[in-house]
Amino acid sequence: MKLFNPHDPRHLLTSALLVLAFLIPFVIGSNLYYLTILILMLIFIIYASAWNFLTFSGQGSLGHAAFFGLGGYAASLMAVKLGLPPLVTLLFGGCFAALIGVLIGLTCVRLREWFLAMVTFGFAVIIQTLIVSQLAPVTGGWDGFPVPKLVPPSFPGYLMIEYYLVLLIAIVIILIFRYLLQSRIGLALAAIRENEVEARAAGINPVPFKLFAFGVSAFVTGIAGSLEIFHFGYITPEIFGIDLSFWPIIYSITGGLGTLAGPIVGTIVVTLLWDGLNSLGLTYARFIIIGVLLVLIIIFLPRGLVSLPDEIKKRLKKRRS
């Protein structure tokens, strides 16, 4: 496996994107607004990639906000109660989310897709209820609690440092996903996704692989959740909201399900579109446009925006012949 091949246009594009990501604060200026948008965008790229990783195993989730929030709560409680630096507790947040993810996965691996979607959705509702009722003495209930920032604001240019930290984390995570998918695990996951019965016949036991996918996805989602909270500096149970479960789905589908680049492209395009429509003063129409885009892409471009160049090439070829 070669990390960089100058003759592969996809590699060139990726490297161009990377260079852009590193230079962008210098190009557009390191002001608060741009950095806020960029950091949130990166966090959602991580989140959407984690959600998308689950679909590689043929599973899906409608309640990933559960892991997003659990990661956030675990990491911030750890940071507040033990006074550990956020960068350390981040990992703890991920691990906690992964643990719960595997437990949920245990019930889910035997379920059909629709059931799985329901269980995950319901799980997010249950967790939020728990956090604000029975667990309120620890979690602060609806009031939430303040959390230290990823980089203390007393540092000069702390937001810039935060941006590069999140960028680095995002790159590492995507490289790990890339490695996993090209390894034998990735092949097994693909086999299970395409046809579980045949995979079984070929001697692959789907259960540990599906659990693994669930655990990894929950782990990375938990990290994304912790990052968001350490960025905001305050945690409230709104982190389990339904909209937070749906955004990674929208990003991944728009970009391209089951591709590594899909969630990245999807997050960038949809966020820019969203903020753009916002500054045009569109309110409800914004949601309608996103909804229509989603429906059109599912029907006409099932492999998402990343497949657009191929589709255009195909069309041109057809016209020529």
């Binding site: 579109l273 753009g276 500054s279 045009l280 446009i289 885009l293 006409f300 069309r315």
Partner: peptide, 26 residues
């Protein structure tokens, strides 16, 4: 092929919006 053009037109509109709006904020 007509069906796909619907999508392309829509995407083109979205892109225009994007450019327009990024211009606005500047």
């Amino acid at each position: 092929m007509k069906r796909e053009s619907v999508l392309f037109v829509f995407l083109a509109i979205c892109l225009t919006f994007l450019l327009l709006s990024s211009g606005c904020t500047e």
